[in-house]
Design a protein around this nucleic acid. Structure first.
Length: 637
RNA sequence: GGGGGAGUAGCUCAGCUGGUUAGAGCGCCGGCCUGUCACGCCGGAGGUCGCGGGUUCAAGUCCCGUCUCUCUCGCCA
């Protein structure tokens, strides 16, 4: 007989009744009835009920067992007595009658129990991660993660991609997030950096002629955490392809993601054709470049209805500032004063001056609330009827005409789900909220309000994965602090502009420069940015011009990206790629709200590993070897 | 770096406008219990109320400072 087990705790069924078996595992739950003792024995594969009674010879030993002790049981399988079966468990029709017990690993009193679904404090869970990981939900999440990564690999390989490994110790990159640095012992005063992404390596792999690259790539960024952003390190399905257009990348990646979500999405519908939405249309219609399309609400432009109106606050601002707009977010079902006031105080808590609104109720068809009174019944009626998802004279709907990457147009009801909700405009019981300001200043808040209304009014579709492409990101943006033009995303993207005309551009022509779009795209699912990618700029002359337009001369380009700039001098193929975030994909598929629920050993929000105690101090000798002298900040107080 | 929330038994939490000996559930220890699967019943141990200072006759409760955790904004080519 094997030293530890003949079967796992998930194996045994009625067909094995009568067999002599040996099981090893953790004491999951112990029920002591005095004369008979039930121990649920748990391992990775399942749980098996084990029974000990005074006749078994193991009774005295069994009474000493406690939760989470690791034990080996010898015994025989038997069918459970009639009426005591547990159909909830795969092994619920059998039990093991235990005749011998060997304690393999006793456990101290637990800081957090494994059994049950109680919520425990985050720092406790992280410090005792090995216990937390024994719990069913987290254990399953980690196994799901592995299965998803297997499937991603298989799908990529089936798509003709090859997996590569790129360096972990590399050079600090000047753009983007803060780097993690590793001091060099052999080169005093110099540092390696952990890669924020294998961006340059994958492009160089294309220059080297490998054609279709992928990697489940670790990425390191020294930035503060978010619920959907791990501190320090995370994984991307990193992809790069040669001789491709944007559409080729879409056609390669879309089926992989759709397939993964269909395979692991437990039957929840997945967008069959990912619509393409331009960055500017997304900002105007959803107030975000990562719109949650489960929410049917659209932001309407009702500037016209307030211009020269009796609502002084808005009318004056519109008269004074030609760029100012009034954006309206319809709130079907939100037409109660208490609800509107609650939204107003929420807006104030978000640092806004407030949230103007009109609402409609039976007997007050001309609209209730101070805004309606000041604007007057005629304009209020234009707003009410105009908020039906169809553009009109007084109300503009910036709903994009959605296109699939195949070029196919989506029908209006897909592109504009809001139209289905209120085809005749708002009615009694509904409300509308108004945001005033320059689009650049108000879009984020308008987007937040749209999300909040969707949630509060329970309008969002549930149990679906709504995907879209966000395309046509601006190549440059205005940096208000430094009063200069900056790269909007990354300097590697190819401008979506005639190449000769681009090179001929006047460096001082800021208006044209700021209007240039890039072949830069994101995939968004349920309001979460899953990946970002681009067709790269593989031409040194265009790259030099791209830097010049952002105010950098060739010396800067050489200093910052010398390796790649040099590589592009020797025959670079047109190429592009994308990098879906593996952790976020798993998070969505596991139905979790926080990345820590899908990472085996995560750090806390302050980038500390509470289990291993990282980061930690090191010995003076280690520092001497690295030629480092500490210069610590003064202790506060 | 800014803002919100939290810190009371091993864990989750209650503890009102300051007032006698700080409570409950789970866990732990002991006893009883032969069919449970969140087993049940009886008893017990376990608390510098995060830390420091202040106000007060009296502070878990009010004030100030500080530390820790958490969410969030900044940040994230």
């Amino acid at each position: 007989m094997h030293r530890y087990r003949t079967h796992t705790c998930g194996d045994l069924r009625e067909t094995q009744a009568g067999e002599e078996v040996r099981l090893s595992g953790w004491c999951h739950r112990i029920r002591d009835h005095g004369g008979v003792l039930f121990i649920d024995l748990r391992d990775h594969y399942g749980i098996t009920q084990c029974v000990i009674d005074p006749d078994s010879g193991a009774f005295a030993a069994a009474e000493k067992l406690r939760s989470e002790w690791v034990v080996r049981f010898d015994g025989h399988v038997r069918r459970r007595p009639e009426g005591t079966e547990n159909p909830e468990m795969p092994t619920g029709f059998v039990e093991v009658y235990v005749t011998a017990i060997l304690i393999l690993g006793p456990a101290a009193e637990l800081p957090l129990p494994v059994f049950g679904e109680h919520q425990y404090p985050e720092d406790m869970r992280l410090k005792y991660r090995f216990l937390d990981l024994r719990r069913e939900k987290l254990h399953n999440n980690i196994m799901l993660r592995g299965a998803i990564i297997d499937s991603l690999r298989a799908r990529m390989k089936a798509g003709g991609f090859f997996e590569f490994q790129t360096p972990i110790l590399t050079a600090s990159s000047p753009e983007g997030a803060r780097d993690f640095l590793v001091p060099s012992r052999l080169h005093p005063g110099k540092f390696y950096a952990l890669p924020q992404a294998p961006q340059q390596f994958k492009q160089l792999t294309m220059v080297a002629g490998f054609d279709r690259y992928f990697q489940i790539a670790p990425c390191f960024r020294d930035e503060d955490a978010r619920a959907d952003r791990s501190p320090g390190e995370f994984y991307q399905l990193d992809i790069e392809m040669s001789f491709v257009t944007q559409e080729d990348v879409f056609e390669a990646v879309e089926p992989v993601l759709r397939g993964i979500f269909e395979e692991f999405g437990e039957g929840k519908p997945v967008t069959q054709q990912f619509p393409m939405i331009s960055y500017s249309a997304a900002i105007r219609a959803y107030g975000s470049d990562k719109p949650d399309l489960r929410n049917p609400l659209l932001i309407h432009d009702v500037t016209q209805a307030f211009r020269d109106s009796g609502f002084g606050v808005f009318a004056k601002r519109l008269a004074a500032d030609p760029e100012a707009r009034v954006w309206a977010i319809p709130a079907p079902g939100g037409g109660q004063r208490t609800f509107c006031d609650r939204m107003d105080s929420w807006a104030k808590s978000e640092g806004q001056p407030g949230l103007a609104y009109i609402f409609w109720r039976e007997g007050e068809e001309t609209g209730a609330g101070p805004v309606a009174k000041n604007v007057g019944p005629e304009r209020t009626e234009h707003i009410r009827r105009g908020l039906n998802g169809v553009p009109g004279e007084w109300v503009q709907v910036p709903a994009p005409e959605l296109t699939a990457s195949t070029g196919e147009k989506f029908p209006l009801e897909v592109a504009n789900p809001y139209r289905q909700l209120r085809p005749e405009g708002l009615k009694a019981g509904d409300a509308v909220f108004f945001v005033l300001g320059k689009p650049d200043d108000i879009y984020k808040f308008a987007g937040l309000a749209r999300q909040r209304l969707g949630t509060e009014l329970n309008l969002a579709t549930k149990d679906v994965f709504e995907f879209c492409w966000i395309v046509d990101f601006p190549m440059y943006e205005w940096n208000e602090d430094e009063k200069k033009i900056d790269f909007s995303h990354n300097p590697f993207s190819m401008p979506n502009f005639d190449h000769d005309a681009f090179i001929a551009l006047d460096d001082a022509d800021q208006a044209t420069t700021l209007s240039i779009k890039a072949f830069q795209y994101d995939i968004v699912c349920n309001g979460i940015e899953l990946s970002s990618g681009a067709i790269r700029n593989h031409r040194p002359d265009i790259m030099k011009k791209a830097f010049a337009l952002a105010g950098y001369d060739e010396a800067v380009l050489l200093e910052k990206f010398g390796g790649m700039y040099r590589a592009f001098q020797y025959g670079a193929p047109p190429h592009g790629g994308i990098a879906p975030g593996v952790d976020r994909i798993v998070m969505l598929l596991a139905g979790e709200e926080n990345l820590r629920e899908v990472v085996l050993f995560p750090m806390n929000q302050r980038a500390e590993d509470l289990l291993m105690g990282a980061p930690s101090e090191v010995t003076p000798k280690q520092l001497r070897d690295l030629h480092i002298r500490l210069n610590l900040p003064e202790k506060k107080g």
